[in-house]
Nucleic acid binder design. Structure first.
Length: 485
RNA sequence: GGCGCCAUCGUCAAGUGGUUAAGACACCGCCCUUUCACGGCGGGUUCAUGGGUUCGAAUCCCAUUGGCGUCACCA
């Protein structure tokens, strides 16, 4: 009999979606869906001091943007709720006490501050393990606050299985009597996790590799309850490149590293998801790199997961983003790009469609849009060396020679004919007549009008966007500074 | 520091004892081109080091080194 695969994503509501967390959610979702299983969203808000208002809505919105759809969770329904830990308080207390009854845990009445200084067993005192019954009774009668700690074996070792890493063994003496129930009555993350994962029938636990060391504590807990231990899959961390060339776990200091930041920076949610999926996972059977969510689900397999850390690479993300941009239809691109273009003078606003079409295949990020067209608003000052191009045999001298004639030619073009096609035809005639290289004339014109070495679009495209008056002003100005030399 | 995890081009990576060690990004060169981009073609001392095992090792074992993580009443 096959049990349904159930995975979960269990973020704490911190107010932003770190890219590493998004990846964990994605893999959990992909695995569940690839196995026709369920993906559960659970909110881990047991740390009251960290609570951020609206964070839950934020998480839900982000998942929605990323096209990760929970089958169960707060607001999604499901038979194992509530899916917010702060609403499950009584459950944890009940199970913690069950463990005390069984002798697998004990009450500790020690003062946390005092113990921290003592430190013989870390931040706690194991003597509470053996408190006589009457002492415990007295503490309880006095209403003394306490925590419940898990009683770890003092010798031997604990082994658990991880899909990626195989069996991992840790000596029990390395394990401390971790707190299960805090002084404020809230469960710790480690405890609530075990309870909820069991109660919610989670079969596969995907989480960051930073939990490897604490996993034996989990398995000991499952065993103490007599529960089946789920399958663990510890994911390698996502790293960021530091300025000095070293790498460390991806964090805010590496720049835009939350899903939200990346979207703001002009990366499409689909492209981010696509890239993140590939950061630590490989389909193996194909060299395909552009995947829709459906294709990811189809291709996803656990053995494609990498156990070594991956460095987040903005270049690759940019390439993937560019691929999505190129595939997009014109109208959609225009709509998406408009907010990134900034305030535009009327003549550019009028040509926005043309502009968008020119930029569509050239952009890597939407946020580069404004910068790419800035030269159309203010002509940059430029060096005469821009007129040098060996391929087309362009030199500043040639430019000085050709420009006056081309300006004269363009002066004659009526406003109505100031279009890309008409200008191109006109200039072609000129080029044929002079028997010069097309690239030569176009280069000179483009540089003189744009003042920029690399431009979106060729000479006539730029002239047509600029308009007759503006174009001629620019050309004359460029000629003047060329003559002044 | 103890313990644990990891180690193939700059980056993502395929590879599970015999390969000319894939592919992609980035980079460089060439072609195409009305510049750039797109597209096409091509390029690069990549298996951390040292020992084993083996006829044969990127693949298996050990050590070293390095990176990362973990040692909370945070998650």
């Amino acid at each position: 009999m096959n049990t349904t695969v159930r995975t979960r994503f269990a973020p704490s509501p911190t107010g932003y979606m770190h890219i590493g967390n998004l990846r964990t959610a994605l893999y959990g979702y992909l695995y569940a869906k690839s196995q026709k299983g369920d993906f559960v969203l659970r909110i881990e808000d047991t740390d009251r001091s960290r609570y951020v208002a609206d964070a839950v809505d934020f998480i839900k919105r982000t998942l929605e943007l990323a096209h990760i759809v929970p089958d169960e969770g707060p607001g999604f329904g499901g038979d194992y709720g509530p899916y917010v830990q702060s609403e499950r308080m009584d459950l944890y207390k009940k199970y913690a006490e069950e463990l005390v009854e069984k002798g697998a845990a004990y009450r500790c009445f020690c003062d946390p501050d005092e113990n921290h200084a003592a430190g013989e067993f870390g931040g706690y005192d194991r003597t509470c393990r053996d408190l006589p019954a009457d002492v415990i009774e007295k503490h309880l009668a006095d209403g003394d606050p306490y925590v419940i700690r898990q009683k770890m074996p003092l010798s031997g070792e604990t082994t658990f299985f991880d899909v990626l890493h195989g069996n991992i063994t840790i000596k029990n003496e390395e394990l401390e009597d971790q707190v299960l129930l805090k002084r404020d009555g809230m469960p710790t993350y480690n405890f609530a996790n075990v309870i909820d994962d069991h109660l919610m029938k989670i079969t596969h636990i995907m989480r960051g590799a930073e939990f490897i060391t604490s996993t034996p504590k989990y398995t000991l807990l499952y065993e103490a309850f007599g529960w089946e231990v789920p399958t663990f899959i510890h994911l390698a961390p996502v790293m960021g490149k530091n300025e000095d060339g070293t790498v460390s776990k991806l964090s805010k200091r590496h720049g835009a590293t939350s899903f939200e930041d990346l979207v703001k920076a002009g990366y499409l949610p689909e492209a981010i998801t696509n890239y993140v999926a590939l950061l630590g996972w490989n389909p193996k059977t194909t060299n395909q790199e552009i995947f829709s969510m459906e294709e990811l689900i189809e291709a996803f397999r656990l053995d494609g997961l990498s156990k070594s850390p991956a460095v987040f690479d903005y270049d690759k993300l940019g390439w993937i983003n560019g691929e999505y941009l190129k595939k997009m239809d014109e109208a959609e691109f225009e709509k998406l790009a408009r907010p990134f273009a900034g305030d535009l003078p009327d003549y550019l606003e009028a040509h926005f469609g043309t502009l968008a079409a020119l930029l569509k295949t050239r952009l890597t990020r939407l946020s580069d849009f404004a910068g790419e067209i800035a030269f159309l608003i203010d002509q940059p000052a430029f060096d005469a060396s821009f007129y040098e191009n060996k391929r087309n045999k362009v030199t500043p001298e040639k430019a000085k020679e050709l420009l006056p004639d081309m300006i004269a030619l363009l002066e004659e073009v009526p406003e109505a004919d100031w279009t890309n096609d008409a200008l191109y035809a006109k200039l072609n005639d000129f080029i044929a007549e002079r028997e010069i290289k097309k690239g030569l004339a176009m280069w000179v014109l483009r540089i003189a009008a744009a003042g920029k070495l690399v431009t979106p679009g060729g000479a006539t495209e730029i002239l047509s966007i600029l308009g007759k008056k503006n174009s001629l002003e620019r050309l004359k100005k460029s000629l003047a500074s060329l003559s002044a030399m």
